[in-house]
Simulated scan of single mutants.
Amino acid sequence: MSNALSLSQRRALRALSLAYFVQATGALSIAGSLTAISAAWQLTDSQSARLLTVFGLTFALAAPLAQVLFGHYRRRQQVLSGMLLFSLGAFAFALSPGYGALIASRVMMGLGAGLIGPVLVALGAELTHEQQRGRAIGIVLLGVSMASLAGIPLAAWIASLWGAKVLFALVGLISLLSGLNILFSVPSGPEGTPIHLADIAGVLRKGEYLSAFLVVFFITAGVYSFYSFIAPLIRDTYAGGTHAVSAALTVLGVAGVLGNLYVTRAAARLSAEKLLITGMLLLIMDTALITMLPKILSILLLALVVWAFATDMLWPSQQRRVVELSSTKLRGVALALTSAFMFGGIGFGSAVAAWIYPLAGFYGLTGISVAFILMALLCLRLSERLRKLPASEQAAPQ
Protein backbone atom coordinates (compact mmCIF):
# COMPACT_ATOMS: atom_id res chain seq x y z
CA MET A 1 0.00 0.00 0.00
CA SER A 2 1.33 3.44 -0.92
CA ASN A 3 2.27 5.78 1.90
CA ALA A 4 1.53 8.83 -0.26
CA LEU A 5 -1.37 11.03 0.81
CA SER A 6 -4.00 11.92 -1.77
CA LEU A 7 -4.77 15.51 -2.72
CA SER A 8 -8.06 15.47 -0.80
CA GLN A 9 -6.33 14.02 2.28
CA ARG A 10 -3.63 16.72 2.18
CA ARG A 11 -6.26 19.43 1.78
CA ALA A 12 -8.26 18.11 4.74
CA LEU A 13 -5.19 17.73 6.96
CA ARG A 14 -4.08 21.27 6.14
CA ALA A 15 -7.52 22.59 7.08
CA LEU A 16 -7.28 20.81 10.43
CA SER A 17 -3.74 22.11 10.87
CA LEU A 18 -4.98 25.66 10.24
CA ALA A 19 -7.66 25.19 12.89
CA TYR A 20 -4.95 24.12 15.35
CA PHE A 21 -2.96 27.20 14.33
CA VAL A 22 -5.91 29.47 15.14
CA GLN A 23 -6.63 27.74 18.45
CA ALA A 24 -2.99 27.78 19.56
CA THR A 25 -2.52 31.41 18.57
CA GLY A 26 -5.68 32.53 20.37
CA ALA A 27 -4.89 30.44 23.42
CA LEU A 28 -1.18 31.22 23.81
CA SER A 29 -0.87 34.77 22.46
CA ILE A 30 -1.42 35.92 26.05
CA ALA A 31 2.26 35.13 26.74
CA GLY A 32 3.67 37.30 23.95
CA SER A 33 1.07 40.04 24.49
CA LEU A 34 1.29 40.19 28.29
CA THR A 35 2.50 43.78 28.38
CA ALA A 36 -0.14 45.02 25.90
CA ILE A 37 -2.95 43.26 27.79
CA SER A 38 -1.76 44.66 31.10
CA ALA A 39 -1.68 48.16 29.59
CA ALA A 40 -5.11 47.90 27.94
CA TRP A 41 -6.92 46.86 31.12
CA GLN A 42 -4.52 48.31 33.75
CA LEU A 43 -3.49 44.88 35.07
CA THR A 44 -0.32 43.51 36.65
CA ASP A 45 1.72 40.95 34.71
CA SER A 46 0.63 38.25 37.15
CA GLN A 47 -3.05 39.12 36.59
CA SER A 48 -2.58 38.93 32.83
CA ALA A 49 -0.72 35.60 33.13
CA ARG A 50 -3.68 34.19 35.07
CA LEU A 51 -5.79 34.61 31.92
CA LEU A 52 -3.61 31.86 30.43
CA THR A 53 -4.21 29.81 33.59
CA VAL A 54 -7.99 30.27 33.33
CA PHE A 55 -7.97 29.09 29.72
CA GLY A 56 -5.78 26.08 30.49
CA LEU A 57 -7.81 24.87 33.46
CA THR A 58 -11.11 25.40 31.61
CA PHE A 59 -9.81 23.39 28.68
CA ALA A 60 -8.55 20.66 31.01
CA LEU A 61 -12.06 20.17 32.39
CA ALA A 62 -13.94 20.78 29.13
CA ALA A 63 -12.00 18.43 26.84
CA PRO A 64 -13.03 15.11 28.47
CA LEU A 65 -16.51 16.32 29.47
CA ALA A 66 -17.16 17.48 25.91
CA GLN A 67 -16.48 13.93 24.73
CA VAL A 68 -19.01 12.62 27.26
CA LEU A 69 -21.69 15.10 26.19
CA PHE A 70 -20.95 15.39 22.46
CA GLY A 71 -18.60 12.52 21.59
CA HIS A 72 -21.39 10.67 19.75
CA TYR A 73 -21.65 13.48 17.20
CA ARG A 74 -19.53 13.45 14.05
CA ARG A 75 -16.05 14.75 14.78
CA ARG A 76 -16.28 17.46 12.14
CA GLN A 77 -19.48 18.74 13.75
CA GLN A 78 -17.71 18.92 17.11
CA VAL A 79 -14.84 20.90 15.59
CA LEU A 80 -17.17 23.36 13.83
CA SER A 81 -19.16 23.95 17.04
CA GLY A 82 -15.92 24.51 18.96
CA MET A 83 -14.61 26.97 16.36
CA LEU A 84 -17.81 29.02 16.65
CA LEU A 85 -17.67 29.13 20.46
CA PHE A 86 -13.94 29.91 20.40
CA SER A 87 -14.60 32.77 17.98
CA LEU A 88 -17.38 34.22 20.14
CA GLY A 89 -15.07 34.05 23.15
CA ALA A 90 -12.35 35.96 21.27
CA PHE A 91 -14.83 38.67 20.28
CA ALA A 92 -16.02 38.86 23.90
CA PHE A 93 -12.40 39.28 25.03
CA ALA A 94 -11.93 42.22 22.64
CA LEU A 95 -15.10 43.88 24.00
CA SER A 96 -14.48 43.14 27.69
CA PRO A 97 -14.93 46.19 29.96
CA GLY A 98 -12.92 44.77 32.86
CA TYR A 99 -11.02 41.87 34.41
CA GLY A 100 -14.11 39.83 35.30
CA ALA A 101 -15.32 39.94 31.70
CA LEU A 102 -11.84 38.99 30.49
CA ILE A 103 -11.90 35.89 32.68
CA ALA A 104 -15.40 34.98 31.44
CA SER A 105 -14.29 35.34 27.81
CA ARG A 106 -11.28 33.11 28.42
CA VAL A 107 -13.59 30.50 29.95
CA MET A 108 -15.68 30.66 26.76
CA MET A 109 -12.58 30.26 24.59
CA GLY A 110 -11.44 27.34 26.75
CA LEU A 111 -14.82 25.62 26.35
CA GLY A 112 -14.63 26.04 22.57
CA ALA A 113 -11.06 24.76 22.46
CA GLY A 114 -12.16 21.74 24.50
CA LEU A 115 -14.32 20.72 21.56
CA ILE A 116 -11.60 21.45 18.99
CA GLY A 117 -8.21 20.26 20.22
CA PRO A 118 -8.75 16.58 21.08
CA VAL A 119 -10.91 15.97 18.01
CA LEU A 120 -8.52 17.47 15.45
CA VAL A 121 -5.86 14.81 16.00
CA ALA A 122 -8.41 11.97 16.09
CA LEU A 123 -10.08 13.27 12.94
CA GLY A 124 -6.73 13.58 11.16
CA ALA A 125 -5.80 10.02 12.17
CA GLU A 126 -9.12 8.71 10.84
CA LEU A 127 -8.55 10.29 7.42
CA THR A 128 -5.52 8.07 6.71
CA HIS A 129 -4.39 4.46 6.79
CA GLU A 130 -2.41 3.16 9.76
CA GLN A 131 0.90 3.41 7.87
CA GLN A 132 0.26 7.12 7.24
CA ARG A 133 -0.95 7.94 10.75
CA GLY A 134 2.33 9.31 12.14
CA ARG A 135 2.68 11.63 9.16
CA ALA A 136 -0.97 12.74 9.35
CA ILE A 137 -0.69 13.59 13.06
CA GLY A 138 2.52 15.51 12.34
CA ILE A 139 0.76 17.56 9.65
CA VAL A 140 -2.17 18.40 11.95
CA LEU A 141 0.14 19.36 14.82
CA LEU A 142 2.27 21.45 12.47
CA GLY A 143 -0.42 24.08 13.05
CA VAL A 144 0.78 24.40 16.65
CA SER A 145 4.36 24.90 15.47
CA MET A 146 3.24 27.41 12.86
CA ALA A 147 1.42 29.29 15.61
CA SER A 148 4.78 29.57 17.37
CA LEU A 149 6.52 30.50 14.11
CA ALA A 150 4.10 33.11 12.81
CA GLY A 151 0.93 33.36 14.87
CA ILE A 152 2.25 34.25 18.32
CA PRO A 153 5.04 36.63 17.13
CA LEU A 154 2.53 38.29 14.79
CA ALA A 155 0.02 38.49 17.64
CA ALA A 156 2.61 40.18 19.86
CA TRP A 157 3.39 42.66 17.07
CA ILE A 158 -0.30 43.43 16.43
CA ALA A 159 -0.95 43.87 20.16
CA SER A 160 2.00 46.26 20.53
CA LEU A 161 0.99 48.25 17.44
CA TRP A 162 -2.82 48.34 17.60
CA GLY A 163 -3.60 46.96 21.02
CA ALA A 164 -4.83 43.68 22.50
CA LYS A 165 -8.47 44.42 21.65
CA VAL A 166 -7.73 44.51 17.91
CA LEU A 167 -5.67 41.34 18.27
CA PHE A 168 -8.52 39.29 19.75
CA ALA A 169 -11.07 40.70 17.32
CA LEU A 170 -8.83 39.33 14.54
CA VAL A 171 -8.54 35.98 16.33
CA GLY A 172 -12.34 35.77 16.38
CA LEU A 173 -12.63 36.59 12.68
CA ILE A 174 -9.94 34.14 11.57
CA SER A 175 -11.51 31.43 13.72
CA LEU A 176 -14.78 31.83 11.82
CA LEU A 177 -12.98 31.66 8.46
CA SER A 178 -11.09 28.55 9.58
CA GLY A 179 -14.38 26.87 10.45
CA LEU A 180 -15.67 27.54 6.95
CA ASN A 181 -12.49 26.04 5.51
CA ILE A 182 -13.09 22.83 7.49
CA LEU A 183 -16.72 22.75 6.39
CA PHE A 184 -15.70 22.66 2.73
CA SER A 185 -12.43 20.67 2.96
CA VAL A 186 -12.90 17.92 5.54
CA PRO A 187 -15.25 14.95 4.96
CA SER A 188 -18.11 14.63 7.42
CA GLY A 189 -16.86 11.19 8.42
CA PRO A 190 -18.55 8.49 10.49
CA GLU A 191 -20.52 9.03 13.67
CA GLY A 192 -18.41 9.68 16.74
CA THR A 193 -17.87 7.14 19.50
CA PRO A 194 -20.18 7.57 22.52
CA ILE A 195 -18.10 8.23 25.63
CA HIS A 196 -19.33 7.80 29.21
CA LEU A 197 -17.90 9.01 32.49
CA ALA A 198 -17.20 5.36 33.26
CA ASP A 199 -14.99 5.20 30.14
CA ILE A 200 -12.95 8.18 31.39
CA ALA A 201 -12.66 6.66 34.86
CA GLY A 202 -11.68 3.34 33.31
CA VAL A 203 -8.90 4.92 31.26
CA LEU A 204 -7.60 6.91 34.24
CA ARG A 205 -7.53 3.74 36.37
CA LYS A 206 -5.07 2.15 33.93
CA GLY A 207 -1.60 2.97 35.13
CA GLU A 208 -0.04 3.06 31.67
CA TYR A 209 -2.56 5.70 30.54
CA LEU A 210 -2.50 7.81 33.70
CA SER A 211 1.29 7.93 33.76
CA ALA A 212 1.29 8.80 30.03
CA PHE A 213 -1.07 11.71 30.72
CA LEU A 214 1.17 12.87 33.56
CA VAL A 215 4.08 12.95 31.09
CA VAL A 216 2.35 15.64 29.03
CA PHE A 217 1.12 17.43 32.17
CA PHE A 218 4.64 17.90 33.53
CA ILE A 219 6.11 18.68 30.10
CA THR A 220 3.66 21.53 29.56
CA ALA A 221 4.00 22.72 33.17
CA GLY A 222 7.77 22.88 32.65
CA VAL A 223 7.56 24.62 29.30
CA TYR A 224 4.93 27.19 30.27
CA SER A 225 6.35 28.03 33.67
CA PHE A 226 9.12 29.60 31.57
CA TYR A 227 7.33 30.55 28.35
CA SER A 228 4.33 32.32 29.92
CA PHE A 229 6.69 34.97 31.36
CA ILE A 230 8.96 35.29 28.32
CA ALA A 231 8.04 38.97 27.80
CA PRO A 232 8.67 40.07 31.43
CA LEU A 233 11.86 37.95 31.52
CA ILE A 234 13.26 39.66 28.44
CA ARG A 235 12.21 43.05 29.79
CA ASP A 236 13.55 42.59 33.32
CA THR A 237 16.55 40.24 32.90
CA TYR A 238 17.77 41.10 29.38
CA ALA A 239 16.71 44.78 29.22
CA GLY A 240 14.82 44.13 25.97
CA GLY A 241 11.74 45.88 24.63
CA THR A 242 8.86 44.95 22.33
CA HIS A 243 11.11 44.22 19.35
CA ALA A 244 13.27 41.91 21.46
CA VAL A 245 10.19 39.96 22.56
CA SER A 246 9.01 39.65 18.94
CA ALA A 247 12.50 38.48 17.91
CA ALA A 248 12.53 35.85 20.67
CA LEU A 249 9.06 34.60 19.71
CA THR A 250 10.11 34.39 16.06
CA VAL A 251 13.24 32.42 16.94
CA LEU A 252 11.10 30.08 19.05
CA GLY A 253 8.69 29.67 16.17
CA VAL A 254 11.28 28.94 13.48
CA ALA A 255 13.16 26.42 15.63
CA GLY A 256 9.88 24.88 16.75
CA VAL A 257 8.77 24.23 13.18
CA LEU A 258 12.13 22.59 12.50
CA GLY A 259 11.59 20.35 15.52
CA ASN A 260 8.12 19.40 14.31
CA LEU A 261 9.36 18.66 10.79
CA TYR A 262 12.17 16.55 12.21
CA VAL A 263 9.69 14.47 14.22
CA THR A 264 7.41 14.06 11.20
CA ARG A 265 10.28 12.42 9.32
CA ALA A 266 11.93 10.65 12.25
CA ALA A 267 8.65 8.98 13.26
CA ALA A 268 9.22 6.32 10.58
CA ARG A 269 12.42 5.05 12.24
CA LEU A 270 12.35 6.17 15.90
CA SER A 271 9.84 5.25 18.58
CA ALA A 272 7.75 7.92 20.28
CA GLU A 273 9.48 7.05 23.56
CA LYS A 274 12.96 7.70 22.14
CA LEU A 275 11.87 11.02 20.65
CA LEU A 276 10.30 12.06 23.96
CA ILE A 277 13.41 11.20 25.96
CA THR A 278 15.66 13.03 23.49
CA GLY A 279 13.46 16.13 23.53
CA MET A 280 13.20 16.27 27.31
CA LEU A 281 16.93 15.81 27.87
CA LEU A 282 17.68 18.58 25.36
CA LEU A 283 15.16 20.82 27.13
CA ILE A 284 16.68 20.21 30.57
CA MET A 285 20.24 20.83 29.39
CA ASP A 286 19.34 23.96 27.44
CA THR A 287 17.30 25.49 30.27
CA ALA A 288 20.19 24.86 32.65
CA LEU A 289 22.53 26.46 30.11
CA ILE A 290 20.29 29.53 29.81
CA THR A 291 20.50 29.91 33.59
CA MET A 292 24.32 29.86 33.59
CA LEU A 293 25.05 31.91 30.45
CA PRO A 294 25.64 35.70 30.54
CA LYS A 295 22.39 37.66 30.44
CA ILE A 296 22.93 38.98 26.90
CA LEU A 297 19.96 38.99 24.53
CA SER A 298 21.82 37.57 21.51
CA ILE A 299 23.03 34.62 23.63
CA LEU A 300 19.49 34.01 24.86
CA LEU A 301 18.17 33.94 21.29
CA LEU A 302 20.75 31.31 20.33
CA ALA A 303 19.85 29.18 23.34
CA LEU A 304 16.14 29.49 22.53
CA VAL A 305 16.76 27.80 19.16
CA VAL A 306 17.60 24.53 20.94
CA TRP A 307 14.85 25.11 23.54
CA ALA A 308 12.12 25.46 20.89
CA PHE A 309 13.47 22.61 18.74
CA ALA A 310 13.32 20.30 21.74
CA THR A 311 9.87 21.52 22.80
CA ASP A 312 8.31 20.90 19.40
CA MET A 313 9.79 17.41 19.27
CA LEU A 314 7.62 16.59 22.26
CA TRP A 315 4.04 17.48 21.22
CA PRO A 316 3.63 15.18 18.18
CA SER A 317 5.62 12.41 19.85
CA GLN A 318 3.35 12.47 22.89
CA GLN A 319 0.19 12.44 20.75
CA ARG A 320 1.58 9.60 18.65
CA ARG A 321 2.41 7.61 21.78
CA VAL A 322 -1.15 7.97 23.10
CA VAL A 323 -2.58 6.93 19.72
CA GLU A 324 -0.35 3.85 19.79
CA LEU A 325 -1.35 3.05 23.38
CA SER A 326 -5.08 3.31 22.82
CA SER A 327 -7.56 1.09 21.02
CA THR A 328 -9.88 2.56 18.38
CA LYS A 329 -12.73 2.57 20.91
CA LEU A 330 -10.74 4.49 23.54
CA ARG A 331 -8.80 6.75 21.16
CA GLY A 332 -11.24 9.67 21.39
CA VAL A 333 -11.30 9.75 25.19
CA ALA A 334 -7.54 9.10 25.41
CA LEU A 335 -6.77 12.05 23.13
CA ALA A 336 -9.30 14.21 24.98
CA LEU A 337 -7.59 13.37 28.27
CA THR A 338 -4.18 14.01 26.69
CA SER A 339 -5.32 17.49 25.68
CA ALA A 340 -6.92 17.98 29.09
CA PHE A 341 -3.70 17.11 30.90
CA MET A 342 -1.73 19.23 28.39
CA PHE A 343 -3.74 22.36 29.04
CA GLY A 344 -4.01 21.52 32.71
CA GLY A 345 -0.21 21.58 32.69
CA ILE A 346 -0.24 24.90 30.85
CA GLY A 347 -2.63 26.34 33.43
CA PHE A 348 -0.69 24.90 36.36
CA GLY A 349 2.71 25.96 34.98
CA SER A 350 1.58 29.52 34.27
CA ALA A 351 -0.07 29.74 37.71
CA VAL A 352 3.15 28.60 39.38
CA ALA A 353 5.07 31.13 37.27
CA ALA A 354 2.70 33.93 38.33
CA TRP A 355 3.44 33.00 41.97
CA ILE A 356 7.18 32.30 41.61
CA TYR A 357 8.25 35.23 39.42
CA PRO A 358 7.51 38.05 41.89
CA LEU A 359 9.31 36.04 44.62
CA ALA A 360 12.31 34.42 42.87
CA GLY A 361 12.47 36.04 39.42
CA PHE A 362 14.39 34.52 36.51
CA TYR A 363 16.20 31.79 38.46
CA GLY A 364 13.00 30.67 40.16
CA LEU A 365 11.30 30.13 36.79
CA THR A 366 14.18 28.22 35.19
CA GLY A 367 14.58 26.07 38.31
CA ILE A 368 10.92 25.07 38.49
CA SER A 369 10.89 24.44 34.72
CA VAL A 370 13.74 21.91 34.99
CA ALA A 371 12.08 20.25 38.00
CA PHE A 372 8.83 19.73 36.07
CA ILE A 373 10.62 18.22 33.05
CA LEU A 374 12.48 15.80 35.36
CA MET A 375 9.09 14.74 36.73
CA ALA A 376 7.92 14.13 33.15
CA LEU A 377 10.92 11.87 32.51
CA LEU A 378 10.12 9.83 35.62
CA CYS A 379 6.47 9.49 34.54
CA LEU A 380 7.56 8.32 31.06
CA ARG A 381 9.77 5.64 32.58
CA LEU A 382 6.89 4.50 34.79
CA SER A 383 4.47 4.48 31.85
CA GLU A 384 6.79 2.30 29.77
CA ARG A 385 7.19 -0.16 32.63
CA LEU A 386 3.43 -0.38 33.13
CA ARG A 387 2.88 -0.71 29.38
CA LYS A 388 4.82 -3.98 29.41
CA LEU A 389 2.84 -5.48 32.27
CA PRO A 390 -0.13 -7.82 31.69
CA ALA A 391 -3.43 -5.93 31.43
CA SER A 392 -4.58 -7.29 34.79
CA GLU A 393 -1.66 -5.56 36.55
CA GLN A 394 -1.93 -2.14 34.89
CA ALA A 395 -4.54 -0.56 37.12
CA ALA A 396 -3.37 2.44 39.05
CA PRO A 397 -2.98 1.91 42.78
CA GLN A 398 -6.24 2.48 44.63
Rank of each mutant, 00 (worst) to 15 (best):
L13H: 04
R14F: 15
F21V: 05
V22F: 01
V22L: 02
L28F: 15
L34A: 02
L34R: 05
S38R: 06
A39Q: 15
A39Y: 13
S46C: 04
S48I: 08
L52D: 03
V54K: 01
F55P: 00
L57D: 03
F59A: 02
L61K: 07
A63P: 04
A63T: 15
A63K: 07
Q67G: 11
V68W: 13
V68E: 07
G71N: 04
H72R: 09
L84R: 05
L85D: 11
F86L: 13
G89Q: 05
A90C: 13
F93M: 03
L95E: 10
P97F: 02
G98A: 09
Y99S: 00
G100Q: 08
L102A: 08
L102K: 01
S105C: 12
S105A: 15
S105Q: 11
S105N: 13
R106L: 01
M108P: 10
M109D: 08
G112Q: 02
V119W: 06
V121P: 02
A125R: 07
E126Q: 03
T128F: 01
Q131K: 07
V144D: 04
V144T: 14
S145C: 11
S145L: 08
M146A: 00
L149E: 02
L154Y: 03
A155V: 06
W157A: 07
W162C: 01
K165R: 15
V166T: 15
A169W: 14
L170I: 13
G172T: 01
I174V: 13
G179Y: 12
L183V: 06
L183P: 10
S188A: 10
G192T: 11
P194M: 01
A198D: 12
D199S: 14
A201T: 14
G202T: 08
V203K: 01
V203W: 06
Y209V: 09
S211E: 06
A212H: 10
V215T: 10
A221E: 12
G222W: 14
A231V: 07
R235W: 03
D236F: 05
G240Q: 06
A247D: 14
L252Y: 14
V254S: 05
G259P: 03
Y262K: 07
A268F: 08
A272D: 14
K274F: 08
I277T: 11
L282N: 10
M285L: 15
L293I: 12
S298P: 03
I299A: 03
A303H: 02
V305A: 04
T311K: 02
L314V: 14
L314H: 05
E324D: 12
S326R: 04
T328Q: 11
T328C: 00
R331V: 06
A336D: 13
S339K: 05
F341E: 11
G344C: 01
V352N: 03
V352S: 11
A353L: 09
W355P: 14
G364A: 01
T366D: 10
G367W: 14
G367K: 07
G367M: 15
S369W: 15
L374A: 04
L377F: 07
L380P: 05
R385T: 10
P397G: 09
